[in-house]
Simulated scan of single mutants.
Amino acid sequence: MKKGKWNAITDVPNVKVGHVTLDEELPNEGAIRTGVTAILPHAGNLFEQKVPAASFILNGFGKTVGLIQVDELGVLESPIMLTNTFSVAQVLQGTLDYMLAQNKTIADTTSSLNIVVGECNDSYLNSMREMKVQAHHAIEAIQLAATGPVEQGAIGAGKGMICYEVKGGIGSSSRLVAHESTTYTVGVLTLTNFGKSSECKINDWLQSNGFDQYEATFPTKEEVEKPDGSVIIIVATDAPVNERQLKRFAKRSAIGLGRTGTSVHNGSGDIIIAFSNGYTIPHSADDMTISPALLRDEHPIMNDLFKAVVEATEEAVYQSLLHAETTTGRDGRVIEKCILEKK
């Protein structure tokens, strides 16, 4: 399917992405290789203008914040924040500080706030016990969020992540879905930290997507002895769909993940969050009802949107590999990048 201008989640109009990366040497062979990534569904006030959203837990070995309420009410009212496992609390605090400063009515004259934070375990390369991510890093990531091209690979929350035993991290891709005079965009961003190199199907993808003159090679080494890992997948669209339909999108994203080769290991947290900014839901309104015009499930465009989610998810995983750089972490550990060579 056709890709957007940037081939990234930011091809969905008004979606923004920001990163803060922490890269620091510590005494006694310690190293900080971590960060924060923020995904903003639109450029306005996220609390006052919520977006429909849903999540799908493929494997629940993870420590997310906020998904219970997302699935109960079907809306997202904060940035989606990504970081390492031990920094969820600090990122939550920073995001809360930011949102409270932007919205004086929260927990005063109106309701409280639901913040969404996801994580992966980067402790193989990162001295995660040091907990160097602080609340202000989350605020900075939100403030730095922008439209346009997305930095990928070992950046932001992806700085210390490992995917298919080579360097992973942030990856993104997009697809355009057209019907008559209407075009919608599906964008995906992944935080990849999972899998064994023997599983990876990237060369099959290269062959079937016009890159058959290239071959991806994984540096020869002993198997990386690390936790099973995780992946967080963010699916965004401007198609006018509701939370039930977005959960269907999230489930299709799991198919795209499976195409890359993973069998979803026991200790892997595989969590998908989907949202649409095709319309917003006001926090306060005088009307008793809302009636956005939604796509019909049985319209042929729905199948095209499903396909777009699958394709963009698969490619976003691979983009995290193709953009990452060889990284040295704590205790002198080195994770090589995936090498793309002409045959």
Rank of each mutant, 00 (worst) to 15 (best):
G332E: 07
Q143C: 10
S123A: 13
K159N: 09
A178E: 15
E325R: 13
G60S: 14
E315S: 09
S230A: 15
V51R: 03
D270R: 07
P149I: 01
Y318D: 01
N266A: 15
V70N: 12
V117P: 02
N266Y: 13
N84R: 10
K3P: 00
I39N: 03
H179D: 14
G30D: 12
I234H: 09
T289K: 08
P13F: 04
P52C: 12
G30R: 02
L295M: 10
N114T: 11
L257F: 11
S78R: 01
P282I: 05
L305T: 06
H19P: 04
F194K: 02
P41Y: 00
V177F: 05
L40I: 06
F194G: 00
I170A: 08
T183N: 05
D97I: 00
N126Q: 13
K16N: 13
Q93T: 14
E222P: 07
L92E: 15
L113A: 01
Q152G: 05
A43I: 04
N242C: 09
V264Y: 11
K63D: 12
V88F: 05
V70H: 04
R252A: 06
L189W: 03
L26K: 11
G158N: 00
I142R: 04
T85E: 05
C338P: 01
A285L: 10
E25M: 11
A308H: 00
I162Y: 01
T34V: 12
S230I: 02
L176T: 07
S181L: 08
L125M: 07
L206H: 00
L246Q: 10
I80A: 03
P79R: 05
Y279S: 03
I155G: 01
S263P: 03
L100M: 13
G35R: 06
T110G: 09
I271Y: 11
K5F: 08
A145E: 07
S55P: 07
E341A: 14
S320T: 10
K159W: 00
E140D: 12
D204F: 03
V334C: 04
E72Q: 15
E341G: 01
V91H: 12
A141F: 02
H19F: 12
R333H: 13
E325N: 13
V70R: 07
G160D: 09
L22D: 11
K337Y: 01
I106H: 07
V70I: 14
I57Y: 08
P282T: 06
C338M: 13
N266K: 15
V264Q: 07
T328A: 13
A135S: 15
I115A: 02
K104H: 12
M131I: 13
V70G: 00
S181D: 15
T260E: 09
D297C: 03
D212E: 13
H179W: 06
